[in-house]
Simulated assay, not measured.
Amino acid sequence: MIKRHHIRQFLGVADAGSFVQAAARLHITQPSLSAGIAELERLVGTRLFVRNRRLVRLTEAGGAFLPIARDLERGFRAADSFGRGSTPDWPTLRLGAIRTVAPGLLRAVIAPLRDAYGVELVEGSDQELRVLLAGGRIAAALTLLRPGEHGATVHGLWEEPYRMFVPAGHPLTRAGTVAPEDLASAIMIARRACEVLDDTSRFFTAAGVRPRFALRSDSDERCMAMVAAGLGITTAPLSLAVAGTVPIDVAGYTFRRRVGLLCDPGFGHDLIARGLLPVIAAGVRGEGAVAD
């Protein structure tokens, strides 16, 4: 018979992605945890985890069992608190988000979810979040959607271009569309978190432009603030514009991105059932983004 400690141990490993970390969080020894997971796998009749030295991830069966386990744990917690006041089950949603989402757009996505779930936000790159999602360690990721990526677990929210941003009052703001060569003498700011950073570098290199850099930073907020201060110019998604910066068009620089939610099947179904997608989409439009 499956018992609560089986469920807690399964969720501990799924969320931590490691037997060592899960054992520490559960305050049990690693051999005890391994034995508990092995017993659970025997009871359900299939392997739930793929184990190797570097990573522990869910099998296909483990991914299917994950929403069941979360529902069971919620039920156990509700039973524990029955008759003596309830305490919120936190978090009920672990949501990943790429670091380059503008604050207003992130707020538009989070606000409806926060009202429906206890949300824990996990930051990462697109690749990092996809690994976490595949391993069952987050329920959804607000991230870049790839060409042709569709389906019941994929929900596009907005699409936007990347632009070159210059300080307000910069001579290039009056030039209309500029050629890449017009930026040869410009001082640049490198957004290290930019998803098209390598593509941008190749674009300008092919045009013979090898700029100097005044700043290389992981902080989009700092990069855009320094553009506004006149330290240099940078490329960024249109939604990252701040006061004191102006987007300009560069001939041939046509990169775009599509952002949306990638969900595990259980959360994707719940998102639709609760009617939250239209609310999120309305919030995104209210921030001025072009709905996908």
Rank of each mutant, 00 (worst) to 15 (best):
G83L: 08
G85E: 05
L129R: 03
H5C: 13
P161H: 06
I189P: 01
L105T: 05
T59E: 02
R57C: 10
L11Q: 00
P265C: 01
S34D: 09
P278G: 02
I28N: 05
F267P: 00
R202G: 06
G136A: 02
G275A: 01
A69T: 09
L55H: 15
L197Q: 10
R94D: 03
M226W: 14
T92A: 13
T245D: 03
M164S: 04
A139W: 04
R130Q: 10
P88I: 12
I68P: 03
S217I: 08
A102Q: 08
I187H: 11
T177R: 09
E159D: 15
A186M: 12
G208A: 01
L231V: 15
Q30H: 10
G83R: 08
D220F: 15
T235I: 09
A140M: 04
A139S: 12
E123I: 07
Q30G: 08
H27Y: 12
A102G: 11
S219R: 13
I189Q: 00
D264L: 05
V109H: 02
V279N: 00
A97D: 04
T235Y: 00
T153P: 13
R192G: 09
A22G: 04
A140H: 02
G244E: 04
T177A: 12
T254A: 15
V20E: 08
D182N: 12
L11K: 02
V259S: 02
G169I: 07
T177E: 11
L66I: 08
L271V: 02
D71S: 13
Y117H: 06
Y253G: 04
V109E: 06
A193T: 13
G232N: 02
G252M: 03
D249G: 08
A35L: 14
M224K: 07
T143A: 03
R51Y: 07
R84D: 11
A228K: 05
Y253M: 05
L276I: 00
V279F: 00
R70V: 10
A281H: 01
V20Q: 08
L277H: 00
M224A: 06
D89S: 11
V13D: 04
G17F: 03
L106A: 12
D270V: 00
V166W: 11
I2C: 04
L106E: 12
D270C: 00
L48F: 12
I28G: 05
A186D: 06
N52S: 15
V109F: 05
F255C: 06
C223K: 05
A16K: 05
L276S: 00
H170G: 07
A251H: 13
G151E: 13
T59V: 04
L113I: 06
G148N: 12
G288W: 00
S32D: 13
A111T: 15
R74A: 13
A229L: 10
T87M: 11
P278E: 01
L238F: 06
D182I: 07
W90I: 14
V178I: 09
P161G: 14
F267R: 01
A61F: 13
L215D: 08
D199V: 07
G244K: 00
P31L: 05
V166Y: 11
A134D: 11
L142I: 10
R258A: 10
L40H: 12
R99G: 10
A23M: 03
R47A: 15
L72W: 15
R285E: 11
A229G: 07
V250R: 04
R174Y: 05
F255T: 03
L133Q: 01
V284S: 02
W90M: 14
R47S: 15
Q21L: 09
D264M: 05
E60W: 07
G283E: 02
K3F: 15
L144K: 10
P171S: 03
A79N: 06
